[in-house]
């Protein structure tokens, strides 16, 4: 069983391909970290997979009807928009729209999951950026779709919230769902993800378990960095040391 299947997915911006010929599949239980430097095509891959961007090739999600797709996959865009001063609970409840607005218990579960019960009645727009990010993650969880696609979900979060967010996603995967999250923090990815995809100039250049993927050669070639790796009782630790040249 797969939750997402991509076959030869290509996404173009104008004539220029930003995602080229990517074939992948996601199985239940997987928490996939989507890595790559800026402009590698991570966001375009996710949006192409969802069918939000026009694409060539095939994505199992893009072929579904709008409502069926919304029940199959939740999407957490990088831009964190909350246009109106709705309460936190109401924003999270927007995740229930694909289910006809039904499922108040799913909203409560998502609020609890993201530690937001104390904020539930507050106006979401009055919270800090990091708190709003948690509200939006809760919104995606409330959708209770098996697959969650998240674009840099940990950006702008404090260290505790970053780790907690990764744990929430790991738990979602462990419970039979799957998560694909684009990440810039290679350390977080190495520690929490079950599988890593690395993109470089629109192509998938590595796919596998974190230990197998994050090699010195790959870091040099794709990310232009040297890094220090160590195993600790808490899991692998990863620290970039220096760049291999400037921009």
């Amino acid at each position: 069983m797969t939750l997402l299947q991509l076959q030869a997915l290509t996404v173009r911006r104008g004539q220029c391909p930003v995602v080229e010929d990517v074939s992948l599949s996601v199985a239940p239980g997987e928490f996939i970290g989507l890595l790559g430097p800026n402009g590698a095509g991570k966001t375009s891959l996710l949006r192409g997979a969802l069918g939000i961007l026009p694409h060539e090739g095939r994505s199992s999600l893009a072929g579904l009807g709008a409502d069926a797709r919304a029940r199959a996959a939740a999407w957490l865009p990088q831009s964190r928009e909350i246009a109106w001063g709705m309460s936190v609970r109401e924003v999270v409840a927007l995740g229930r729209l694909p289910h006809g607005g039904q499922g108040a218990d799913a909203v409560e579960r998502a609020l609890a999951r993201m530690g937001l019960h104390a904020y539930a009645a507050r106006r979401a727009t009055q919270l800090s950026g990091g708190e709003q990010a948690r509200v939006l993650i809760a919104r995606a969880l409330a959708q209770e779709a098996p697959l969650v696609l998240a674009d840099e979900p940990t950006a702008g979060l404090d260290p505790a919230a970053q780790i907690a967010t990764m744990r929430v996603f790991a738990a979602h995967a462990a419970a039979g769902g799957a998560v694909v999250a684009s990440l810039h923090d290679l350390g977080l990815a190495a520690r929490h993800c079950t599988r890593l995809w690395v993109m470089h100039r629109g192509r998938l250049v590595a796919d596998g378990a974190p230990g197998a993927v994050l090699t010195a050669d790959l870091l040099a070639e794709v990310f232009h960095i040297r890094a220090h790796f160590a195993q600790t009782p808490e899991g692998p630790v990863f620290q970039p040391l220096n760049t291999l040249g400037d921009f």
Partner: peptide, 20 residues
């Protein structure tokens, strides 16, 4: 109403919530 509610979260999120 449903579409406008979803659009609160931006155009991308609205599309992912099943809104055309």
């Amino acid at each position: 109403g449903r579409g406008l509610d979803a659009l609160t979260l931006g155009e991308d999120a609205a599309v992912s919530l099943g809104i055309s």
